[in-house]
Design a protein around this nucleic acid. Structure first.
Lengths: 214, 214
DNA sequence: GCAAACATACCAACTGGTCGGTATGCCGAC
DNA sequence: GTCGGCATACCGACCAGTTGGTATGTTTGC
């Protein structure tokens, strides 16, 4: 979900270093394929430290999703698109902000929660729920602006919550498509797909009321 | 991608049984978390048979993506939505067809290629390419109808290939969102999201030409 | 001095993969 | 027609390495 988070303070405790390692390794190798030893190696920490802070690998997965959730929501809360007066501008501003974050290798802008839930939704309910909270929490942050936009433009036949989920759907889907590609095409295809989301919303919020419903 | 494929003949050879097992297990547990022993157990086949037919687990992954690709494309080629005279009806018919396929647990309608590429895009180029072929092949099957619809309705600012990719994006993204849910909500959220895709296309192909571009 | 934060050594279970062997069916030669 | 030769399909014990997890220390801050 979030890409290159600049000015992130370097983690100090072993716990933080492990969470950072989890974000990095899960993004590029997935949850199952990432071993506890790899995590410890990446974090520069021993296995004893790992199991001191987390009772199991699954617990690290849950904590990583929550850590991810917290750092991304703080990142987006501080973004500039909130300042627009028009709610439609805030919504489109969010999409443009996401668009600007896409670049470089996929593991730099993909989503930890989306990656983990794909693998663990059946084997670990705890991880599934933590990833749900992360993704739906990110969606919920847009809901107020979407509700205002819907009210202002008189959009019928959907809801702010449903549209917020659609934003996440297109974002997550664009990451999957991006992962099928190589090199610069990864970012290019992800940007292209967010462009369709932008166009959908532009049409939805600008069109005459009687043309909205099919 | 494809869900409940009815009337599929029961696999006979060990190879076919292993491919069927791979589709089932990868869909519910992912690629990395599925072991060769599990695959053999599910297929009712020994390890000797596995490595007789596939040189490695990775090769099975590639073969599974190709097998998946072949069976889904045959399934969609035989679907009834192709018979509509209007290309826009064919495109919307495809979406409605996909909508009708969504139901039951996620692993019954999710996509093997999308699941695998999320895990293996960095560790296995062969699997990545096989999944790309599967997903983009599915997209390509819609391209002609989309091109005709674009031409007929005078849509500007995009291409048939890009819109075809968007269909896959929303489908793959809806599967990710569905996997965050439990029980019947899985199918419900996936259907809701395909509904947005349908609405986007409805607007795109019906609106006056001068209103299309923002 | 004492608890939290780590480190080291270790374990049973499992991992993908190998290897010698067998059962079966198809081939032309006689 | 039946026999030897040979390829394909499959079996299951086995291997070295790795897995998540534990048990027992040691260090450090207060």
């Amino acid at each position: 979900m979030i890409p290159n988070r600049p000015f992130r303070p370097a983690p100090v405790t072993a716990r933080d270093k492990l969470l950072e390692a989890a974000v990095k390794l899960v993004r590029s190798n997935g949850y199952s394929a990432t071993s506890v030893d790899q995590l410890c190696g990446e974090a520069g920490v021993t296995k004893g430290a790992f199991f001191h802070h987390f009772p199991s690998k699954e617990a690290l997965g849950v904590a990583a999703a929550e850590y991810w959730s917290a750092s991304t929501s703080a990142f987006f809360a501080a973004a500039p698109y909130h300042h627009h007066a028009d709610p439609v501008d805030r919504v489109l501003g969010y999409i443009d902000f996401r668009l600007a974050l896409i670049g470089g290798p996929v593991e730099g802008f993909s989503c930890v929660a989306g990656t983990m839930v794909q693998e663990a939704f059946r084997s670990s309910a705890a991880i599934r729920v933590a990833c749900e909270a992360s993704i739906m929490g990110n969606a919920a942050a847009l809901e107020a602006d979407l509700a205002a936009a819907i009210a202002q433009r008189g959009v019928k036949g959907t809801s702010a919550a449903s549209l917020a989920r659609h934003v996440q759907t297109v974002i997550q889907g664009s990451f999957v498509l991006a992962k099928t590609q190589d090199g610069e095409m990864c970012a290019e295809i992800a940007r292209e797909q967010l462009g369709h989301l932008r166009r959908y919303f532009s049409m939805l919020f600008n069109v005459d009321e009687d043309r909205i419903l099919q």
